[in-house]
Write a protein that binds this DNA or RNA. Structure first.
Lengths: 340, 340
DNA sequence: TCACGAAATGTGAACGGTCACAATCGCTGT
DNA sequence: ACAGCGATTGTGACCGTTCACATTTCGTGA
């Protein structure tokens, strides 16, 4: 049916050209939707492409265009729900925009590991990087390696030239804190995340701001590692004093661990201790009791990440993308007025 | 300090060659660890590379070698713990082996979506594909598009030429079922996963096999969608009859939902209903009560995936990689003898 | 000292696209 | 009928690497 072809090799743009009776450049134009192509020509070329199952070679394209159309994601704890959802959303959004995504996981958070991961990304000539990791350290390494691709984080680092997405995590944390205060709690404890995660720092800041604004005295937060296990052990420790009536955990997993510890101590939630989480992972509604938490729209986050990053790559004004995402408080059974 | 260079363009292999006073090919040899390079020459070249911060251009490399060194992951529900951990492990293992990973997420499980995702992967000339998704359908599409790259799945499809990794999920499911039977349960219900997921099918098969082997009568399982929400609703439905004393859920999230429904009904776990999950997500130990479940070593899974896939790409005998991973039963508080 | 073969290095052509520029086609108005 | 111009198509070089095939260098034994 079709004309003979060199076998053992994927068809190239010139194979298509020959069979369609046009020049290779015309085929290229068809592929790139160049405006001045006669419809009949275009149809003929497309038909040959179809027949040959031709696919443009990405490497060749990247080489001659000088652009990889790839962005890198630097991720830590990528199997946790929050990061994982953002990554998925980032991939979807990138694909939508015709970009490819490559993820490098941090095996640990030390400098060497970060360096290795960044290196891996740079080797693929990524055009930009999304950081979902302990950002402060990552940036140090970025600078140290004098790497100069645009990057995006999920929250401002306060550094100059940082292209950050504004999720108003401070606001989210204030919502959670305010909820507890409104219920009548005055002794509220905060289990924070690792402080080199900007998100963790922002949530803690929000907590402290709201407590300050409402004139409630605070104690120093504990810094956790995002895991339920840590929440459990921190909870056990805290319960030895029991000088609080509510705990605000900076993510849902740690909140789950705390709930475990509270039950172990024979106490009731929310009568003896109210608990608020952050993220609203899909499981949170099924905890016992269902967890009051702050919902983040991870998918929207991912989309905006890509919009901002691609915008930056294209040289647009980053401020165009600065509109903050406002998280939402979801009240469930884990919070109530203090018993006294 | 360093000699002058064309600016505005990343240094190429020829720039390095010129400054080192060798031919571009020699530089290439240094980069690829060719054996016959004089040590002194190698050192000189490496020094220039260092000075110039030279990085080989991946596109050019892929083009001339005809190999992308990229593998694709086709993933559904990529934000769930199980898949997410496997993906992370796959990325790590691939990176270790000098490969890059590109993930395409399924937005839905219909054919069009699968086709789009596969297409995206093929456009990057992936050398192999790992499927973490409803595999049966994916393979239909793979065949339909007459795509011919090696692929790996997490469980045998029973089709000829399938390169599957053997995680003995059947065995894992039998362990869970046997545990319940040994405790004295005779009316055991199974909440299965979507049946076009091979894992789900295998777990169900294991359940049925063990029930049959022990001569315990079974009722038809319900097919769920892996989510806690589904587990909750299925649980409510099931509890209207309450003709069982134990439930084996094919993953931990659905088990959590069931636990929620059981508590809503005012029943006690495990006194009134025993519950077993599958996966051992990190949160499972902190559920209320802590969940008895079957642990899968997702990281090992990911590593083996890559080993098998790269082996297949290199033309090795896939049987070399067939040694099954044996899951492990983790007994916690959610199971106990039936009350009667 | 010289031939000889292996080790070390160099040369030029791919790889498969895109880019810049040139050439041709086809229509319009006079 | 023909100049003029935009629409359409073609030509050859180039992107940065590796490949296949020279060529040169060097150590060794006769």
């Amino acid at each position: 049916m079709t004309a003979e072809l060199p076998t053992g090799r994927a068809p190239s743009i010139r194979d298509v050209a020959r069979l369609a009776g046009v020049s290779h450049q015309t085929v290229s134009r068809v592929l790139n939707n160049h405006p001045s192509i006669r419809d009949s020509t275009k149809a003929r070329v497309l038909q040959v492409i179809e027949e040959l199952q031709y696919r443009p070679n990405r490497a060749a394209r990247a080489l001659s265009r000088g652009r990889s159309r790839t962005i890198g994601v630097l991720s830590a704890s990528g199997s946790q729900y929050g990061p994982a959802s953002s990554i998925a959303a980032i991939q979807d959004a990138a694909r939508e925009a015709g970009y490819y995504v490559n993820t490098a996981n941090l095996t640990s958070v030390d400098t060497a590991s970060i360096e290795a991961a960044l290196d891996h990304l740079m080797y693929q000539s990524v055009e930009g990087i999304v950081v979902i990791a302990p950002q402060v350290r990552v940036f140090d390494v970025l600078e140290q390696l004098s790497i100069e691709v645009p990057y995006v984080t999920l929250q401002s680092t306060g550094r100059p030239n940082d292209h950050a997405l504004s999720v108003d995590q401070i606001h989210g944390a204030r919502l959670a804190t305010r909820h507890l205060i409104d219920l009548g709690h005055r002794r509220i404890f905060h289990l924070a995340g690792p402080q080199d995660w900007i998100e963790a720092e922002a949530r803690m800041r929000g907590f402290l701001e709201e407590m300050g604004a409402m004139d409630v005295p605070t104690t120093a937060p504990i810094l956790g590692d995002w895991t339920a296990d840590f929440g459990y052990h921190a909870g056990r420790e805290l319960l030895r004093q029991r000088d609080f009536t509510a705990i605000f955990s900076s993510n849902d997993q740690m909140a789950l661990g705390i709930m475990h510890a509270v039950r172990d101590a024979g106490l009731d939630i929310p009568r003896d201790v109210s608990i608020v989480g952050f993220d609203d992972i899909p499981e949170a509604a099924h905890f016992w009791p269902p967890l009051t938490t702050v919902r983040q729209d991870f998918a929207e986050l991912g989309r905006r990440c890509i919009a901002l990053l691609l915008g930056t790559i294209a040289g647009e004004d980053p401020d165009k993308f600065r509109e903050a995402i406002i998280p939402e408080l979801i009240v469930r059974g884990s919070t109530g007025p203090p018993a006294f």
